[in-house]
Design a protein around this nucleic acid. Sequence first.
RNA 1: GGCCCCUUCGACUAGCGGUUAGGUCACCACCCUUUCAAGGUGGCGGCACGGGUUCGAAUCCCGUAGGGGUCACCA
Length: 531
Amino acid sequence: MEVVTRIAPSPTGDPHVGTAYIGLFNYVFAKHHGGRFILRLEDTDRQRYSEGAEQRILEMFTWLGIEPVEGPDIGGENGPYRQSERLDIYRQHVQLLLDAGKAYRAFESAEELDAMRAEQKRLNRPLGYDGRGRSVPKDEQERRAAAGEPHVVRLYTPDEGEVSFVDRLRGEVSIPATEVRDLVLFKSDGYPTYHLANVVDDHLMGVTHVIRAEEWISSTPLHVLLYAAFGWQQPEFIHMPLLRNPDRSKVSKRKLDTSVDSYRQQGILPEALLNFLATMGWSMPDGREVFSVADMTEQFDIDRVSLGGPIFDLKKLRFFNTKYLRDVLSLDDVADRVTPLFEAAGYEWDDEDYLLDVIDVLRPRAETLMDLVDQAGYFFRDTLRYDEAARKQLAAGQAHLQGVERELSMLEFFDYDGVDDMLRDYVQDQAVAMGKVLMPLRAALTGTTQAPGVTDLIVVLGKRESLRRIGQALTFIDAGLPDDDPQRALEEERARKAAEAKARTSHSKSRGAEYAAAGGASQGGAGDEGA
RNA sequence: GGCCCCUUCGACUAGCGGUUAGGUCACCACCCUUUCAAGGUGGCGGCACGGGUUCGAAUCCCGUAGGGGUCACCA
């Protein structure tokens, strides 16, 4: 029999990491068994339905490369794949149960049910529907329904015995029938509940393996009862462990960033996210930890799922991302992905090789695509901004900057070794520590003190641009190293005032109006704080 | 609280009756070094507890504790 799995998200908010997680396992399981993976939208909650959510969920799967073979946007023989478009089907099926005497119409209002629960709570009784609607005679149910009285349809559930099912990972799970309440199949708003729609659809769509999160274990007996009421064969149930917040409660957006879009925006790679999710509760038979979805599919074995709820650890996610960015993906691949981001940041470059060189030297320092964007700024700006540490280096290194400028301009063999030899020779000639020369140079070339090796920088920037930047720095030094960052000037002003106020408590007075008129000068380059 | 599920280093996990309990992340140290990284080497650290079963338990059984989920006309 062909294996059919599905992911059935509800379009209620941001695309969720849990959806990606469960989707991955369903996808891999189906693919491994040569089966089909389908996507169905469970949009029966019209209160929580959110317009754009649907599209974003579909885009998430596209981005991840976890493509269903059937779904709302691609169609398929079992459609429609949006539950809101299958209302007639559910109506027909509840009618079946009604006719067979397996379900009944119940007329309690929401208020009455609330009161019932309040009473149960007060008396310290177990909470839940007490089946009171059963006592309304069938003909009266039909009469009141025909008269348009709002009501729900509930399933008759057994009052004694046990309801059990087999979970592939846990074995038999049994629950006393008294714990199972007459569940609502159809809501008074004309929409089916999750339970009904889910069971009907899984059956009609031929789903053979229900792989979902552990939180569904306690409602599985309900589903089993429903399958039985319809006389259908039940699928195999496989409950995955629940992803956890750092405090071990189930993942929630209050405690963790659960939005896949958000990780995407931060420059997390889909491959890395998937690899990370794959290791949550699963491991490769050979112990490999870095592997692709294709590798996983090939080696997949659902029985290797471990059951402890894994904590969604951002550090580990970043590790995977770093790994993919630096080692797994090719330079070209990274370039392709970062190009739109660089363009959005306003960076411009003439030839592709420059871009590749930049990424090549920056990549060992980046954990995300956005890190690359943030760090690459000085490679694409005509006018550098020198941070405080850089200005200090410049102030101390004027002579060496002039010296290197001279040597560099005379350099003939402009390749890595040529530049490196030139720098080393210069340092040796001057008999100074490397840092005395290289740090000011780094500051001149990048405006910062934390950057790739100077030789790399010069080689990537090229002779002309390197000389231009050194010249620019020397001019800047001549100008007395004015603070050109309005924001920083502001902060320093604030700090100065605070210090001043503090000083006033011990000393009588402080000086310092000379700092006041600093900022304002240049506003070069593009702003790089992208949204 | 009732019911159900779970329990190996801080985190993710390997283990499926006999191992010095292995790996990865994180952390720490050292090396490399021109800053920041990267890289290399090493280190720290664990079978929740108590009973059984067995010649022998991380591995099997029972109990306790702890964690989690669920008790909706939400999914």
